[in-house]
């Protein structure tokens, strides 16, 4: 209940000026301190604080811009390196293809030479074999002749006919050869 008393306590208080903001006694003091404090604030802000804040913001902007530039340069460099790698890879590939082609050519030549050598060898051997065969055949025929003559002589002897050996060989010879 005590609080309720206050409302009237203020009303019955000493005769106050009706409206404090228009009470002129404090005008000089208000203006003096406003000029002083606003002036001090302006000087401190404009001379010390704001240039520094501005410099901080500018520095950040510059740093960001520089970093972006650097990133762009690095990106360009990496792209160049990529391109270089690609060209060197394709160069290596062509070189490898060339080397393979050369090797193939060389091998082809070698194969052809070797084949020729082997062919020649074979032909020689064939010829030799052919010669031997004809020699053997001639030999065999000669043997057949003598066998036929001998057989003729024996047959003549069995039937009791008198035939000379030279006649028999003369008769056989045209039959055999």
């Amino acid at each position: 209940m005590s609080i309720f008393v206050l409302a009237s306590a203020a009303e019955s208080g000493a005769a106050k000026p009706a409206f404090p903001p228009f009470d002129p006694w404090h005008f000089p003091s208000q203006l003096f301190w406003l000029v002083l404090l606003f002036g001090v604030l302006y000087i401190v802000l404009s001379r010390l604080i704001l240039p520094r804040l501005g410099a901080i913001l500018e520095r950040r902007e510059n740093t960001i811009a520089e970093s972006l530039d650097e990133a762009a340069i690095l990106n360009e460099q990496s792209q160049k390196a990529q391109a270089a790698v690609e060209t060197s890879i394709s160069a290596a590939r062509t070189k490898a293809r060339e080397t393979a082609a050369k090797a193939r050519l060389k091998i082809d030549v070698e194969i052809r030479e070797e084949t020729a050598v082997v062919d020649a060898n074979l032909e020689k051997k064939l010829a030799e074999a052919g010669e031997r065969i004809t020699a053997l055949r001639a030999d065999a025929i000669k043997n057949v002749e003598s066998i036929a003559v001998d057989a003729g002589v024996l047959m003549a002897k069995k039937i009791g006919a008198k035939v000379k050996k030279s006649d028999i060989s003369a008769a056989v010879k045209p039959l055999v050869s």
């Binding site: 609080i3 404090p20 404090h26 003091s29 208000q30």
Partner: peptide, 18 residues
């Protein structure tokens, strides 16, 4: 017991320069 709280009673008191 009576407290004196002029700032509660008088809305103008807050503007008084002391």
């Amino acid at each position: 017991m009576t407290y004196f709280f002029p700032q509660i009673a008088d809305p103008m008191h807050q503007f008084v320069v002391q």
